[in-house]
Design a protein around this nucleic acid. Structure first.
Lengths: 205, 205
DNA sequence: GCGGGAGATTGACACGGTGTCAAGATAGCT
DNA sequence: AGCTATCTTGACACCGTGTCAATCTCCCGC
């Protein structure tokens, strides 16, 4: 059973998440969070030293929650590189909508606070490296175009799967998430992969 | 000859630009700008009603300056749709590096202020529409793939030519701007255009 | 069941930034 | 010189962050 401190900690964290989602970074104040949590402002400071610390922690929390909720089946064992690519894209697209607000808030926090910047850099590095491994596998399978390195391909995918891109295409552009997903898949495949199938089909003719 | 008011106006504007570029949105305070301009804080408020107004105005100013400095020749009269596309990409890529800091500051301002949001929406709408017209011309030339509308193509290009993408690929990813430009060109062409050349070449065979 | 200590509350404070105001100094034009 | 637009000065209210100390309350072990 959780101690009192643990309970308060979670209470504040969840409240912070709600405030962050509701008001954006804009009106995310320590007082608002304290209020939402039904706790004193000081208690918030006791558990999270500063506003940026809280934003970072809350973001992490919400991202974890979202990933758990939409929990994609972990990639099956014998999956091909192509499967891994589709899986990575699907995983992202599935969770963006529910975490987009938080991602934007984080972007702002990152621009105005070194600590948030560092935490953010950590999290994104992990994602970039995951993407890179996918393309390394594809390279190993001989499917990566010679003019692309796995890292560059990962950069591209990472950029395509960013909060900003989601905003431009889905929110502002009015694309459905399905179309977004499908086109990112197409785009990346066409750009960085040799079309093994097409090549085989073309050869006999 | 400029009146006193006009002179002060420009003085503040230029100072704001320098502060914005030097310190980012982070330490961009009215006091700092006033200081930099050698003018009283009140004078700043006299000319620009609020901080966000000033950020918006300064950004606009810097963007104009950059565009003038790197002034690309306006698109020749008889240019094809493809020329127009390349021109749009080149124009953006040529100016990003020098205005990226400002763009980021603007993103932050936009997230934390409705007024800045509105001004920003205006400016981007213009760019998106310009891109759309390029693809409409290409569509008219019968070069747009049937599964893409001109607007969707413009959305994609706009996303590819965003501050965030530049950050991911060039700043963080280490791509040269030339590579960035070349690959955006390739990506967009391959994704949304019929390859007229290939089709013509294939038909006789 | 009761003392003690961890943890929460309360209210005060300093600090810095925004935005506003009014009174006075200063410039530039006629 | 005199008049007006413009700029300066210094004060103020307001709000958010972060800190502090005194006080209260829950709950754990004895």
């Amino acid at each position: 059973m959780p101690s009192r401190a643990q309970r308060t900690h979670r209470l504040v964290l969840r409240a912070a998440g709600r405030v962050l989602e509701r008001t954006g970074f804009l009106d995310f104040t320590m007082a608002a969070v304290a209020d939402e949590a039904g706790v004193s402002r000081q208690a918030v400071y006791d558990h999270f030293g500063s506003k940026s610390d809280l934003v970072v922690a809350a973001s992490e929390h919400i991202l974890d929650e979202a990933r758990r909720r939409h929990g994609l089946a972990p990639l099956p064992a014998g999956a091909s590189g192509l499967d891994a690519l589709d899986h990575a894209i699907a995983d992202y697209v599935r969770t963006v909508p529910s975490v987009h607000g938080v991602a934007v808030a984080n972007d702002v926090a990152r621009a105005s606070d070194p600590a948030a910047q560092a935490a953010w850099a950590n999290r994104t590095r992990v994602r970039r490296e995951r993407y890179q491994r996918v393309f390394e596998q594809l390279d190993h399978d001989g499917r990566l175009r010679p003019e692309w390195t796995a890292k560059e391909a990962a950069d591209l995918l990472f950029g395509l799967l960013s909060a900003r891109m989601y905003e431009v295409l889905v929110i502002e552009g009015g694309w459905t998430v399905e179309r977004y997903e499908q086109r990112v898949r197409r785009l990346v495949r066409d750009a960085v992969l040799d079309e093994a199938g097409a090549a085989v089909a073309a050869a006999p003719a």
